[in-house]
Design a protein around this nucleic acid. Structure first.
Length: 718
DNA sequence: TACGGCCAACTTTTT
DNA sequence: GTTGGCCGTA
C-alpha cells in the first residue's frame, strides 16, 4: 500500500493520530476502532516524514500474537527491511536485552527462562527446605507475593521490616527464591523486566545507548501495563524519545494481575504536552450491540470517557435467554448455533464466551451430542505439556548441568530407581557444599555415599548426561532432540503407554521435533538456548487441530482482541458474572469492563443467557440474573425462556422458531410449564422428544432431579 | 517405588 | 462434581 493509500483508508480521528506532529501521544482506542491499523500507520508515517530509520523504532505489545500481527502488517505497508526495528512483547524485548548484555546483568550466558509451573516447583522446594507447613503456608501464596513484588519493581532486599509476621516470612521465601534462581541461572517472567530495568539503572552508558537509539516508542494495550513495565518504558524513553500509548481504560481486565489503569493518567501527567486522540468510531458491531455495551460500561465511575458509535445498521436485538438450568442453557445455545449453521454461517463465526472455565463442560457435552466440532481456547499450551517439559528439561540440563530444577524433574523420569530417600541425601549434601545437585551427586559417588543400587542408578544417570552431551554436540537441533528422546528413554517410556493419552504424548514428542526443525530455519546463533527461550516465552497454541472449522469456546478474558459475527455469553448470573469474589466496588468495575469486552466482540448477533438454577460444585443453586443484564435498556432486548420473579420461574415468553416454547402435541403441555407428578411432586418441563404414544417428556423436579418420563404414563397435571 | 484412597480446593492467566 | 496433591501400604 502506498503512502497516500493508507492515509486515505483512515477516518479523520485516526488520521489525526497517525499524522500528528512528533510528541507524546495518548490514543484512547475503543473496541473495534482500528487501533492496530493506527499503530501500524503511525509507524509508516513516521518513517516517511521524520529523519529516522526502522532502527529508531520500538513497538511493544503484550502478546506474541499481537506482535506478529503488527510485524506482518508493517511488512505489508512498508517496502523496507524491518529486522532492525524492535517489535515484540515486553518480555520478548527484555529477554533480548538480557541476552545481549548477560554479563552486565550479572547472569550466566546460558541463563534460562522458567514458566510459572517451574517457578511453583522451586517455591515448593524452598518451602520444604525451610520446613514450612503447607497447610499454613500455601506455596501459591508465596508465588503470588513474589510475582506481585517483582511487578512492583521491589526486591526482597527492599521490603521494609514492617513487623508483620506474614510479610516477614514471605520475604524470607522471596530472598531464598532469588538466591536459588541466581545460583541456577534461572529467570522468571517478571524477572526479565525487573532485571533489564535494573540493568539500565546501574549502567548509564548502556541506557544512554538505547535511549539514543529508540526515538519513537509505541505501546499497545497500555491499560494493561503494570508498574515495572511503566518504569521500564519511562526509563527507556528518557528525555528525548516520544512515546505513543494506545489503550482503552474500558478494556482493562487484568487488574488482578498487577495491571494499573492509573498508568494512563500517570502517562499524561509525567510525559509533558501529551496530545490525546479518542477513536470512537467502531467498525465491528451493529448499533444495537454498541448501545447495549455503552449502557453497561456507563455504570462505571472513573472513566476517561468515550462512547463508541457506528455507521452500521441497527441490526438484530440482543437476545436474552433465561434457562431453567445450565443444561437447558447449553441446549439453547447449541440449538441456536445449529440454526445459524443451517443458515450458512461457518462454525468458526460463532463463539461461546463464559466467565469461568468450569462452565465449558456442559457446553461441550451438548456440542458432542450434536456432533458439532468445537475448539476450546486456553488450557494446556503445547510447550507446557508434561512430556514436552520433560524433554526440554533434558536439553536444559545438558546446556547447564547446574540447573537443579531440570535435574529434579528428570533424574527419575522415566523411572530409574532413584527414589526420594536418595535424592534427599543429595539435596542435603548439595546444600551443605553450596553446590548444584549434579555436582553434589558426582562428588557423593566419588565418596561412595550411596547404597549399591542407588550408586548404579545415579552413576548411570550422570554418565548418560555426559555421553549425550558429547553425542549431540555436532547434531542439528531436531536431530539432537530426537537423540535425547531416544537415549533418555523418554520416547520408549511414553511408547509403552498404549492408552489414548500415551499415543497423544508420543505425537507431541514428534511435534516437538518438527517445531525444532521449523525453528532452525529462523534463527542461527546459539540454537538450543534460543529454542529453549522460545519455548518458555511463546508457549504455543493449545490444540494441534486448530485448522478445522469449529465453534469457538473461551473465557471472556481470552476473547479480548478477537471478534466474531455471532457471540454467546453464557452464565449471566449474579455470583458467576460478576463473580462472587468480585463484589466489592473496584473489582465490580473490572467485571463490568469484562462484560463490555465480551459484548463488543460481537459483530452481528449477541446472545446473553443465564440459568435460573445451576449446579455449582455439585450442588444445585437458584440464581438471579446478572446486574449487567439490568443495565441494558429493555428496548434493545428480546427475551425468551423462563422470566424469573424472585426465585421461581413463572411466566414463559414464546419464541416462534425455537421448539422450547411450542406445545407438546397431544399432551396439552408446554416446555417450560410447571407440572405436578404423583410421586415426584412439583417440576418444570425442560424438553421432550418423540410424538404420539412415544412422546417422552423431560421434567426437572424440585426434589428429585431431572427425569425423562413417558407422557402417556406420567400423568402430569398442570 | 508405585498405586490407590482420601481430603481440600475451587475466577480470570497476555508472558 | 471434579481434580490435584499428599500419604500410607504392597
Amino acid at each position: 500500500m502506498s503512502h497516500i493509500e493508507y492515509l486515505n483508508a483512515l477516518n479523520p480521528k485516526q488520521r489525526e493520530a497517525v499524522a500528528a506532529a512528533p510528541g507524546h501521544q495518548l490514543v484512547l482506542a475503543g473496541a473495534g476502532s482500528g487501533k492496530t491499523r493506527v499503530l501500524v500507520s503511525r509507524i509508516a508515517w513516521l518513517l516517511q516524514h521524520e529523519p529516522i530509520t526502522p532502527a529508531n523504532i520500538l513497538a511493544v505489545t503484550f502478546t506474541n500474537k499481537a506482535a506478529r500481527e503488527m510485524r506482518e502488517r508493517l511488512g505489508d505497508i512498508l517496502q523496507l527491511p524491518l529486522h532492525s526495528m524492535w517489535v515484540g512483547t515486553f518480555h520478548g524485548l527484555a529477554h533480548r536485552l538480557l541476552r545481549a548484555h548477560w554479563q552486565e546483568a550479572d547472569l550466566p550466558q546460558q541463563f534460562q527462562i522458567i514458566d510459572s509451573e517451574d517457578q511453583s516447583r522451586i517455591i515448593k522446594r524452598i518451602h520444604k527446605a525451610m520446613g514450612l507447613d503447607t497447610e499454613k503456608w500455601p506455596p501459591r501464596q508465596s508465588q503470588w507475593f513474589i510475582n506481585g513484588k517483582k511487578d512492583e519493581g521491589v526486591r526482597a532486599g527492599n521490603i521494609q521490616d514492617s513487623g508483620d509476621y506474614l510479610v516477614e516470612k514471605l520475604t524470607k521465601v522471596y530472598r531464598e527464591y532469588e538466591r536459588v534462581c541466581q545460583q541456577n541461572g534461572l529467570v522468571d517472567f517478571a524477572e526479565l523486566l525487573l532485571r533489564s530495568h535494573e540493568l539500565w539503572l546501574k549502567d548509564a552508558t548502556l541506557l544512554a545507548h538505547y535511549q539514543d537509539r529508540f526515538k519513537y516508542i509505541l505501546v499497545d494495550e497500555f491499560q494493561d501495563t503494570n508498574s515495572i513495565q511503566y518504569a521500564w518504558l519511562k526509563m527507556l524513553a528518557g528525555k528525548n524519545a516520544f512515546l505513543t500509548a494506545v489503550g482503552d481504560d474500558d478494556q482493562s481486565i487484568y487488574g488482578w494481575r498487577g495491571a494499573k489503569i492509573e498508568n494512563i493518567h500517570r502517562f499524561t501527567r509525567e510525559f509533558s504536552n501529551t496530545t490525546t486522540v479518542r477513536l470512537e468510531q467502531n467498525y465491528r458491531s451493529t448499533k444495537n450491540i454498541l448501545s447495549a455495551a455503552n449502557s453497561v460500561i456507563e455504570n462505571n465511575c472513573n472513566r476517561l470517557g468515550k462512547e463508541l458509535w457506528t455507521e452500521d445498521k441497527a441490526g438484530d436485538l440482543i437476545t436474552v435467554y433465561a434457562a431453567y438450568n445450565e443444561v437447558d442453557e447449553a441446549k439453547y445455545i447449541i440449538d441456536s448455533v445449529s440454526e445459524h449453521l443451517r443458515n450458512g454461517v461457518a462454525r468458526s463465526e460463532a463463539a461461546i464466551l463464559y466467565r469461568s472455565n468450569a462452565q465449558s463442560r456442559v457446553l461441550e457435552e451438548q456440542l458432542l451430542l450434536q456432533g458439532i466440532p468445537y475448539r476450546i481456547y486456553g488450557g494446556m499450551k503445547f510447550f507446557e505439556r508434561a512430556e514436552i517439559k520433560d524433554a526440554l528439561a533434558y536439553l536444559r540440563l545438558l546446556m547447564n548441568r547446574d540447573n537443579d530444577i531440570s535435574f529434579e524433574r528428570i533424574v527419575n523420569t522415566p523411572a530409574r530407581s532413584i527414589g526420594n530417600v536418595t535424592l534427599t541425601k543429595v539435596r542435603e549434601y548439595a546444600r551443605g557444599e553450596d553446590s548444584s545437585l549434579f555436582a553434589a551427586t558426582r562428588q557423593m559417588l566419588r565418596n561412595n555415599s550411596f547404597s549399591g543400587r542407588a550408586t548404579n542408578a545415579l552413576s548411570g544417570f550422570i554418565q548418560l548426561m555426559e555421553d549425550v552431551a558429547e553425542e549431540i554436540a555436532d547434531l542439528t537441533l531436531p536431530e539432537a532432540i530426537a537423540h535425547v528422546l531416544h537415549r533418555s528413554g523418554l520416547r520408549e517410556f511414553f511408547n509403552n503407554d498404549k492408552s489414548e493419552k500415551g499415543k497423544a504424548r508420543v505425537e507431541n514428542l514428534n511435534e516437538l521435533i518438527s517445531a525444532a526443525r521449523q525453528f532452525e530455519v529462523e534463527e542461527n546463533d546459539d540454537l538450543v538456548t534460543a529454542f529453549l527461550s522460545h519455548a518458555a516465552l511463546e508457549a504455543g497454541e493449545g490444540q494441534a487441530d486448530a485448522s478445522e472449522d469449529s465453534v469457538q469456546l473461551m473465557t471472556l478474558h481470552s476473547a479480548k482482541g478477537l471478534e466474531f459475527p455471532i457471540v454467546f455469553i453464557a452464565g449471566m448470573e449474579a455470583g458467576l458474572f460478576p463473580h462472587q469474589m468480585s463484589l466489592d466496588e473496584e473489582k465490580l468495575e473490572e467485571e463490568r469492563r469484562l462484560c463490555y469486552v465480551g459484548m463488543t466482540r460481537a459483530r452481528q448477533k449477541l446472545y446473553l443467557t443465564y440459568a435460573n438454577s445451576r449446579r455449582v460444585y455439585g450442588i444445585e443453586n437458584y440464581r438471579q440474573p446478572s446486574r449487567f443484564l439490568r443495565e441494558i435498556p429493555k428496548e434493545l432486548i428480546e427475551s425468551y425462556g423462563a422470566v424469573t420473579q424472585i426465585t421461581r420461574p413463572t411466566t414463559f415468553v414464546e419464541k416462534p422458531s425455537y421448539n422450547v416454547a411450542s406445545e407438546i402435541a397431544d399432551t396439552g403441555l408446554k416446555v417450560g410449564q410447571q407440572v405436578q407428578h404423583k410421586k415426584f411432586g412439583e417440576g418444570v418441563i425442560l424438553n421432550y422428544e418423540g410424538s404420539g404414544s412415544h412422546t417422552r417428556i423431560q421434567v426437572q423436579f424440585a426434589r428429585h432431579g431431572t427425569k425423562w418420563l413417558v407422557a402417556a404414563y406420567a400423568n402430569l397435571s398442570a
